[in-house]
Design a protein around this nucleic acid. Structure first.
Lengths: 334, 334
DNA sequence: CTGAAAGCGCTTACAG
DNA sequence: CTGAAAGCGCTTACAG
């Protein structure tokens, strides 16, 4: 590929001049000269080398996204929001999956440092551990965390506790007493926060938390299916609240396979409001999170931090109970 | 961040020696020297700068993935496969969404060239257009295309035509004559290939293709919902085949909202077999594509191409009809 | 086994 | 308005 020297030679100018026209520099360039350079660029199909530029400028226009799993629609939607804003600002995104595994988190962080990423958006899994923190090195000041608020980073916080509490209270208000909770993997802080909300609502209503009604899933429909069967059949749960929609969809299937009616025999509430939820049968009552907006907010915050605009270090997204047919009869959709 | 000179000084050696131990070079280094260097690296928390290395070596260990939309579970699953293999080989992935828009495709390609990506995996939208091809420049020899086989690139081909044909034949065999097809956006070649299969099956069975039964959706559940309502209510379709599962899920909802039974009154077949399909009600008959495996194959092929191992230029994935309750009674699941 | 030096492709302060 | 030159952080052929 042609480089800046080739262009300079073809245009009969110095590489300094080429650089100035390529970057639309404020340093004045004679119009005729500029046109010669532009012509040479076109003819040679010249593209400036971002590696060389990044090396020199200490700015790569690259951000890393570290998430548990892109095949989880929750993260996919957030990533889409991030990317749309990245696009607007000319940033590229390096996407990394961790499956919440600490070694992979660390490995990915070191990788991003080597690539001189300008910043990191982190979501899912633990970032506030000694080892992870120290891996961050000079990137420590250029991180945005999504979904938690008890970490020492700029954060896009989601009201998981409040949302889960609303969901659980909704089930309590409908008269349910044996409300199961299907959580996420142990290292999912989001699932843990949602568990907090579940406990809070029960406690506030004057009920005790029954540990036998609480199980960990892995956020997939099939884990929701298997655990729901157990909670309903063996533990006699009359309602189930799940840490995400996918597991709730599995739970609905489980109730049906047990020959039970929803919501009459078993009520089910999910979390996230992924697009599919209003199309299943019955439509799923769930807690809405504006995932796409969360992604947008995260990338905007990161861009501000990188460009050292003084930006807020916290954006708060509240959550919203959407009541549909999986908890109340007659509600087909919303 | 510490650089190679800092390390060399601290260890009392030359940067050449540091480089050799960092890269585990075959050039021999005295064991004692090596240990001094290692200690210095550790103490300074030194990470080699990938930009500098990439600039020099003309190899960045970065691959671009250009897809229509990561929030579409079909692509999310493929991307996950790609990334898992990228991880194994030490590659980083830059993810870019195009919404099948030609300008964005071109913009993203140029972006990847500037970043000196080692190769590109492309899926969705058109790559074999003059403008796009020329944007590729020197990357032209380092592209893997997913999902098509009529392009002049190494390809992971999916038997969309055969799959769609099987799906349609299945409906014909069940006695359906008015079979609607809900396609994807006009620039989706995948949806077009699936349309080919639909036509082929009809023609082979001796039926004519009724244009009024064919509509374009946008691959979302809600577009499936709206179009299915129209096809069923106005066009009297008794069966619907959709270009992806998401739209099929919308179509199921539409049939139910019209007060119709599935599969007795309306039969529905999707495409892709995304995880959720076996959990909805009725479970969705669909065509299975091993999406994760497709991603794996694509990245493996790209790695081979980049490292100039002579690799096959074509991998073929066949598709598989999975019959569930949305077309045949008594089939609850598979 | 070790190191000096060239060179990858850029940007910009400086001199003219 | 234009250009020569330094320097970003590396790898490796070459000489010793």
């Amino acid at each position: 590929m042609a480089n800046i020297i080739d262009v300079a030679q073809k245009a009969g100018v110095s590489i300094a001049t080429v650089s100035r026209v390529v970057n639309n520099s404020r340093h004045k360039v004679n119009q005729a000269t500029k046109e010669k350079v532009l012509a040479a660029i076109k003819e040679l199909d010249y593209r400036p080398n971002a590696l060389a530029k990044g090396l020199l400028m200490k700015k790569t226009m690259t951000a890393g996204i570290i998430i548990p799993d892109i095949s989880n629609p929750y993260y996919a939607e957030i990533v889409r929001g991030i990317q749309d804003i990245a696009d607007v600002h000319g940033y590229g995104i390096m996407l990394l999956n961790t499956d919440r595994n600490k070694e992979r988190i660390i490995k990915h962080i070191l990788f991003l440092r080597e690539k001189s990423a300008d910043g990191i958006i982190f979501s899912g899994g633990t970032i506030d551990e000694e080892e992870v923190l120290s891996a961050l090195g000079e990137l420590k000041e250029r991180v945005v965390v999504i979904g938690r608020h008890n970490v020492d980073f700029p954060v896009i916080a989601i009201d998981n506790v409040g949302g889960a509490s609303k969901a659980t209270k909704h089930l309590i208000d409908l008269g349910h007493r044996r409300i199961g909770y299907i959580s996420g993997p142990n290292n999912s802080t989001t699932a843990k926060e949602r568990f907090e909300g579940y406990k809070t609502a029960l406690t506030q209503a004057g009920y005790r938390v029954d540990r036998t009604l609480i199980k960990n899933g892995d956020l997939t429909p099939s884990s929701g299916y298997l655990i729901a069967k157990e909670l309903i059949y063996e533990k006699k749960a009359t309602a189930i609240f799940t840490a995400n929609d996918q597991m709730a969809i599995g739970a609905i299937r489980a109730a049906k396979d047990l020959g039970l009616r929803i919501p009459e025999d078993v009520a089910i509430v999910g979390f996230d409001n992924i697009p599919i939820t209003s199309f299943i049968d019955p439509p799923l009552t769930t807690i809405e999170i504006p995932m796409y907006q969360v992604g947008i907010a995260a990338m905007e915050m990161l861009v501000n931090i990188i460009s050292e605009k003084n930006s807020e270090r916290m954006r708060w997204f509240s959550t919203n109970l959407i009541i549909r047919g999986s908890t109340e009869n007659g509600k087909k959709n919303s």
